[in-house]
Design a protein around this nucleic acid. Sequence first.
DNA 1: AATTTTAAGTTGACAGCGTCTACATAATTT
DNA 2: AAATTATGTAGACGCTGTCAACTTAAAATT
Lengths: 203, 203
Amino acid sequence: MSNTANTYHHGDLAPQILQRGAEIIDEQGIDALSLRGIARDLGVSHAAPNRHFKNKAALLAALATDGWLRVKEATLRAAAETGSEDPRVRLNAMGRGFMRWAFNHRALFRTLLHPDVARFADDSLVDAMQDFTDSVRDAVRASQAQGRHPDVPLGILSLYTNAVPVGAAMLLINPLLSSDHPNLQAFDDEELIEQVINLVVPL
Amino acid sequence: MSNTANTYHHGDLAPQILQRGAEIIDEQGIDALSLRGIARDLGVSHAAPNRHFKNKAALLAALATDGWLRVKEATLRAAAETGSEDPRVRLNAMGRGFMRWAFNHRALFRTLLHPDVARFADDSLVDAMQDFTDSVRDAVRASQAQGRHPDVPLGILSLYTNAVPVGAAMLLINPLLSSDHPNLQAFDDEELIEQVINLVVPL
DNA sequence: AATTTTAAGTTGACAGCGTCTACATAATTT
DNA sequence: AAATTATGTAGACGCTGTCAACTTAAAATT
């Protein structure tokens, strides 16, 4: 399927591998991801993906790079959509935007923090992550300049600010842990996100 | 190695599989875990572990069950060691105890939140998790009774309180993300943990 | 324009893995 | 003492990632 023509050379394989890989991760989880499976789905030979990704870890790294770019985009867009200049309003919106993205791309979100991804990271992945964390830290710095925890070192405050959406998403995405919080059943996702983020970045 | 004798029946295989499994996870990561590898290390045939664990996911679930028991033990011990009755002091100590445990058992900590673990959970795992989250929620409730965020629903406050140590540990354990916070290099682990937890549970 | 080089496919092989079935042996129950 | 059950072994199956050798199309060079 999805071969642009019956050519020997596919012509567009690498991007399609990435796309199909992201689909599989989102539909069946990261453990269901296999190079041979992707090749089958795309109608190419089992070893074709090796021409584009040195190994499975490299494919995972490429998917994570893409994920960091997308989560950064979603986070910054959430800030922009507030239409506000207030650093607290913007940072609060970023936290909610991050969590919303994590909810809508659960498996990819988990991929970003997957141990193997860090272990075989290349430059482009490091850059993508750096980009994301830099923009968050900038927003944290701006909020601190407005009087949010003025005496706490920036690194600590940034870690704390990141930890809440990351940790909360991690806990809520886990089916066992979320069902274990029966009090939370009353809230829908958006309400839940809002209340949690308001505890880290009060308005 | 580590066969109690040259008997046909090993006599103590299941616990040794668990122990060796935990070692491998901690030394080489969760992806290096294989039933055949454990069997080799223990000097038994490749299919012997299947007599004790229905499949690999079941072994993972058993390891996670053990992990939840241990992290609960470490967390409650931290509270006890304060020698205080003040709910805030105790909750603060629990957060630090949790993070300390996560730092010292990185791979096992990640195993607790691994997607496959949740997917193939059995009753004992659910119970172990329930036990842990219940004890945390009790401590959160006590702290709320002392005036900590009195108007926030307990479920939300509990989620927030858990999210900080979980998220912070997750971020710091990731080699790429932690090296990206250069401001944090100045702190040693214990200092870092203290400052972050003080933001969620101020003393 | 012809030729060479390189990029991107294919096929086949290899070892390692999880898991199943059939069989062997020891421990436990009856 | 005999039967049953628990726990080991051996072998097979299909799956996986990865490599080497070969083929074909596209790009670069002459």
